[in-house]
Write a protein that binds this DNA or RNA. Structure first.
Length: 259
DNA sequence: ATGGTCGAACGTCGA
């Protein structure tokens, strides 16, 4: 089974790119972030025509996440528990039946948190604390569970081409990194780090020739429960997609599993 | 070293 995460940065501007990639790669499950669309505006028919079931959790202009799956959805959950006043669409989870039982895939768009002297940074940290509580409950199920998405976290200096430039940024702040490690310390595994110790970026800014200079960062992750990590075959960062016409600033990251 | 780019939506925010 092939499961991918991709911050698409606007589904309307990126539909052609997405369809081309889906036809080429034929992943089983895809989590999209930053669809920047309400549910009614999401181009579901075009994606369904390629054989995918589509579930969205959209919002006007900003944020928004979606799950695409060749398997039918047994369950869908929208929103991160723990704060009824949080109206930002940043989490959608699907549960799917497989031969050996189930696989649970949670797709997130974690808050960016910049600027750090604004309310956005404490919102990010509180969101991550809520996410840890959520993951604790998911891990207790002892299922193959994949938490994937745009985490807006650079876990370590090797995950940035120019780590000095990110000093003080919400993506690199110790408060952010320690909460990312807290997820790992619950028992989740960093999928990419299961397969390589090398630098492997997933985002290159649109500005200042970042792609041309390979000035990238790794902020899109697949975190795996032990039951999912046991079945991990490989993780592939589809970096070639960053060089396609009208790309997103993020590329797809795919995990392959013997599920 | 500095200024630089996108998307959504039509002014300006968010990244």
């Amino acid at each position: 089974m092939r499961i991918a995460t991709w911050n698409i940065n606007g589904i309307k501007a990126r539909l052609g790119l997405l369809l081309t990639w889906l036809e080429q790669e034929k992943p089983d499950i895809v989590g999209l972030q930053e669809i920047k669309s309400v549910d009614e505006g999401f181009p579901r028919a075009e994606i369904e025509a390629l054989g995918y079931n589509v579930e969205t959790f959209g919002q006007k202009s900003w944020n928004g996440v979606a799950l695409l799956s060749r398997l039918p959805f047994d369950e869908v959950h929208r929103g991160l528990p723990g704060d009824d006043s949080d109206e930002q669409a940043r989490l959608i989870e699907g549960v799917f039946s497989i031969e050996q039982g189930v696989v649970r895939v949670c797709n997130i768009y974690l808050p960016n948190g910049n600027p750090v002297d604004s309310p956005k940074f404490p919102y990010k940290l509180a969101w991550m604390d809520r996410l840890a509580t959520f993951c604790e409950k998911r891990l207790a199920l002892e299922e193959p569970f994949i938490l994937m998405g745009d985490f807006n976290i650079i876990p370590a200096p090797i995950d940035a081409h120019d780590p000095e430039a990110w000093w003080g940024d919400a993506l690199f702040r110790p408060e952010s990194q320690e909460r990312f490690r807290a997820l790992l310390n619950l028992g989740l595994r960093d999928g990419l780090r299961e397969v390589t110790d090398e630098a492997s970026y997933t985002f290159w800014d649109f500005q200042a020739g970042a792609w041309r200079r390979n000035n990238g960062i790794r902020i899109d992750h697949l975190l795996l429960s032990p039951q999912a990590a046991d079945r991990l075959e490989m993780v592939k960062v589809h970096r070639d997609v960053r060089g396609w016409d009208k790309p997103s600033d993020h590329v797809p990251v795919e995990g392959r599993f013997t599920l």
